[in-house]
């Protein structure tokens, strides 16, 4: 989770910097679009092997059971 927060802060920081650099707004806007949803530098991307990437991820935890239970209340 901490890694996730870091990433978020970094991107938000980037956008804040964009806001300050009002002058080059158009060019910088294009750069912002490339930052998210695209790839991270290849060196940072770790790949798990084929078996690990298709392993089942879903678990029927208490959280998930509570979701099913509360959805049953509704008609």
């Amino acid at each position: 989770m901490s890694g996730r927060t870091d990433g978020t802060a970094e991107r938000r920081g980037f956008l804040r910097a964009l806001g300050l650099a009002a002058a080059g707004a158009t060019a910088a806007g294009a750069a912002a679009a490339q930052t998210r949803a695209d790839s991270v530098p290849a060196g940072q991307a770790r790949k798990e092997n084929e078996q690990q990437r298709v392993a089942a991820r879903y678990r029927e935890t208490d959280h998930v059971k509570a979701y099913y239970r509360t959805n049953r209340y509704e008609h």
Binding site: M1, G3, R4, D6, G7, T8, V40, Q44, A45, R46, K47, E48, Q52, R53, A55, R57
Partner: peptide
């Protein structure tokens, strides 16, 4: 990657 890393996020 299944582990919520920063790169993955």
């Amino acid at each position: 990657q299944q582990d919520n890393t920063r790169a993955e996020y």
